[in-house]
Amino acid sequence: MIIDRAFALKIAFGVLLFACGAMLSAVLDNYYLQVGTTLAMLCSLCWAWNIVGGYMGYPALCMISFFGIGAYAGGIAQAAGVPETLAWFVAAGVGLLFALLLGVPLLRLKGHYFAVGTIASVEVLREVANNWDQLTGGAIGLNLPIHAGSPDEVGRYFYLAMLGLAFIAFLVTAIVDRTQFGFGLRCIRQNEQAASMVGINVFKYKVGAFVLTGVLGAATGAIYASMVAFIEPKDAFNIIMTIEIPVMVMLGGMGTIFGPLIGGVSYVILKEFVWAYFINWHSGLLGLIVVTVIYFLPVGVLGLTWRDIFRKFGASKSTRPVTSDIARSAS
C-alpha cells in the first residue's frame, strides 16, 4: 500500500467530511435529515458501483439488482423476526452470494454484451419479485416491522446508519485505490490481455470487484428497506436508478476516490433544480444532461487536469508539449 501525502490528505478530508455529516445530525430537522439520508444512500451506491464501473471499467448496469436483492433479503429476514441490524448483515451476505452467482457467468462477457447481461438481471429480478408471492409478497409489496421511536429519532437513526455505510464504502474505495487489488483492476480496465501477462489473475480480480460492489449495494438496499418499512418490486428494482448511478459516477470521475461523492451530490442538486423549474420537461432535460456528461466529460470532473482545462479554453496558449507530436511523426 503506497501512502503519500496527497492520499493522506484525501483520507483526512474524507474523515472530516463524514465527521461533520455525523455531527450535523444533532441540529438538522427531519426534512434535511431525509435529504441527507438519500444523499448518503446514493453516494454508497456510487462508491460501490465505482469499483466495478470505474476502477475495473466494466459497464455494469446491475447496481439496482444488488440494491433490490439486499432490500428483499433484509426485508424478508426482518419480517421473519430477525433483528434489524442482523438483517442488514444477512442482506450483505446474500449480496455476496448473488454477486458470485451473477458475476461468474457474466464476467466472461465484455463491453456491450456485459452491459446487456447486467441490465437484464434487473428485469428478471423484478419479475421474480413480482411473481414469487409467498416469499416477496408479490406486486402488493412487503411490509417490514417499523423502527420504534419518534419520527425525529427514527430519521436521525437511519441518517447515521446510511452515513456509516457510505463511510465504509468510502474507506473500501480508498483501500482499493491504493492496494495491488485496485492496481490490478486498473490494469484490467486498460488491457486484459496485458494484465494476465504480468501475472494478474484477471477472472478472480473481476469476480472480487463484483462481489465488493454487490455486498455494498445489498447492504445499502437493506438499510433502505428498514427505513421505508415497505418495499415493492418496482421500487426495489428501479430501472432508472440502475442508469442514474453510473451517470453520477461519470459526472464526478470514474475510478477516483471522491468522484462518486461529487457526482452523487451534484447530480441530486441538478435533478432537484430541473424538477423545481422545469417540471414539464424534467425527463427530457435530465436525458440531455446524461448525454452531455457522457459526450463532453467522459472522464468526469475529477478526471480533468488543469492542463485539459487550459487546453480547451486557451488553445493558442496551449501548454501541451509539442515534442510528443514531433516525436511521433519522426518515428
Binding site: F183, G184, R186, M197, V198
Partner: peptide, 18 residues
C-alpha cells in the same frame, strides 16, 4: 501493449507486483 493510461513507472510496477 502498454497500459496506456498509466505512467511509465506504473506500467513497470504492474510487472513487479504480480
Amino acid at each position: 501493449q502498454p497500459f496506456a493510461r498509466m505512467t511509465v513507472l506504473e506500467n513497470v510496477m504492474a510487472g513487479a507486483i504480480y
